[in-house]
Design a protein around this nucleic acid. Sequence first.
DNA 1: ATGAAAGCGCTAACAC
DNA 2: GTGTTAGCGCTTTCAT
Lengths: 331, 331
Amino acid sequence: MKANLEDIAKMAGVSKMTVSRVLRGGTGFSQDTRDRVVKVAEKLGYVPNRLAAAFGADQAGTLVGMCVPRLASGLFGQVLDGVDRALSRLGYQLMIGANNHSAAEEEAWIRQVIAWRPAGLILSGRTHTPGTVDLLRNAAAPVVEIWDLTTSPIDMSVGFSHFDCGAEMGQFLLRRGRRRAGYVGALARADVMGAARLEGFDATLSRAGHPIVAREILHDTPGFYAGYYGLETLLSRQPALDVVYFHNDEMAIGGMAYAQSRGLRVPEDIGIAGWGGMEAASILPRRLTTTVVPTTAIGKAAAEALVARLKGEPGLDVTVVPTRLEPGATG
Amino acid sequence: MKANLEDIAKMAGVSKMTVSRVLRGGTGFSQDTRDRVVKVAEKLGYVPNRLAAAFGADQAGTLVGMCVPRLASGLFGQVLDGVDRALSRLGYQLMIGANNHSAAEEEAWIRQVIAWRPAGLILSGRTHTPGTVDLLRNAAAPVVEIWDLTTSPIDMSVGFSHFDCGAEMGQFLLRRGRRRAGYVGALARADVMGAARLEGFDATLSRAGHPIVAREILHDTPGFYAGYYGLETLLSRQPALDVVYFHNDEMAIGGMAYAQSRGLRVPEDIGIAGWGGMEAASILPRRLTTTVVPTTAIGKAAAEALVARLKGEPGLDVTVVPTRLEPGATG
DNA sequence: ATGAAAGCGCTAACAC
DNA sequence: GTGTTAGCGCTTTCAT
């Protein structure tokens, strides 16, 4: 990988500048020059140096940083997919990181990534350290906060309200006649979004006079096992529940497995509700009662908001991407 | 508006070089100088410019590129997680891309990413275009091919044999008395790894005198729905099957859902086997018969192999990460 | 339509 | 322990 603009220039009998213009598809050269330059570049196996380009040009490059809570999360994998498809189509590069649900880790990641002078940043959630906010303000790069909607974003926001998700599920379960609800969560203290759903859920139930009877918030990662054991623990403390709302679908499915292992009928003996809308939930013998989140659409919208801003096009600061309550057959 | 080394140097009354040495944690400065420089850097809110650093220093930087088939894939999400944890701990940055199971798209992505002069690359699979191989050879950056083991890697390889996975499952099902096997695949023509599992599976069964009776390879993405409808189609063509091997666990679970909807008992009337080892498969009322792939470990091993090479440490060119057949209760 | 010169912020190599 | 000099490969600006 030796050839640079100068090598091509010499061999094509033009100046570096002309080569640069041709290769970037600009204007200001004859068709003949263009053909010659392109041919030489090809022959030399020229690989442009984006490091030098992004460094030399003092305008925004094509690097976009994105930070998610966990890379192994199914839902965020879909968001990433949506972001990547939209961004790569437009010639941007994606730099990723995970914050493990920690605002401090997020700040550390951002500190690393802004040193690469990204054109923009996509962050998950609206909870950030003061240091992060400072860093971002100084970097002056467009920022999109996704997933957890905020009406006063650092810059832009794409998402929905977790509180409302919980509230809507509460209302739905009340209509189905549930009166003694439990909750099984995960990532105690680390995850603010699940906590927001729980708040919305409990607020709605409380207003109706049937507040949550028992809750069990594990420290574990939300997964099938956690749901299984979470429900076991919850029921051992408070057996008289007629419905349980879970942190997410994986945990809900784990919970169903536990209920079945105990001989409890779902939804007759106990209702089960999840959150997230994972595909598996819709293929169960009984379709899971849950909230479907349009993950890919959120990723796509975030990428598009970012690019619009980069191109100076008008764009919304706050984009609400509605979730949908899936009634299912388990609630 | 943005402070650079020179600004710090002036304010601290030293030269750029001293500042550089201090900030990179080198040696060759007094404690007093160090303190002064660090304080000034902090006051100025200095953000290093990695673009300039990586560009100016003509040695490998800390950028690592990784390309996966699909970002929304559960298994690859786990691999990514393993890679990211290992890499970020060592101060590397991850640039990602998806190739949608296309070697051509992979080449396009590599062409973009090597322009950023990455320190190394992690690719999925061993099928690449000639253009890719050329590009990689010229770039002279370490490359780890993961997931699908190859004995003659471009550079390094971390993974396992898909053929062997299929062969092992074939043997297992034969031992369980299965004699009329079917196969349901996905991503026809695009996915070579599923095809390798099928080959190994069929080769083993054939050698035992019981070759695959029917196969249905969909063009769809491998998911729950695809498994459901895939089995429906397969059985409509050939109802007399005593076991079906699926492209992956998601499809297998979808297939189980279909079998149950048809009143078929699993495993009495029909056996079901998957591949991949997704967590959901182990929480089903009957644990799924499958092959468990150590995804996170593969990611970790790939990252470590890459870093070892970058540091000039000795490392293996080919790392075999064994899979494990989980007998389960459905096969 | 094309070229010359300056310089982006940093690091390597060497001088003191 | 510290400073000086010389680029890295590209884009920008201005001239022709």
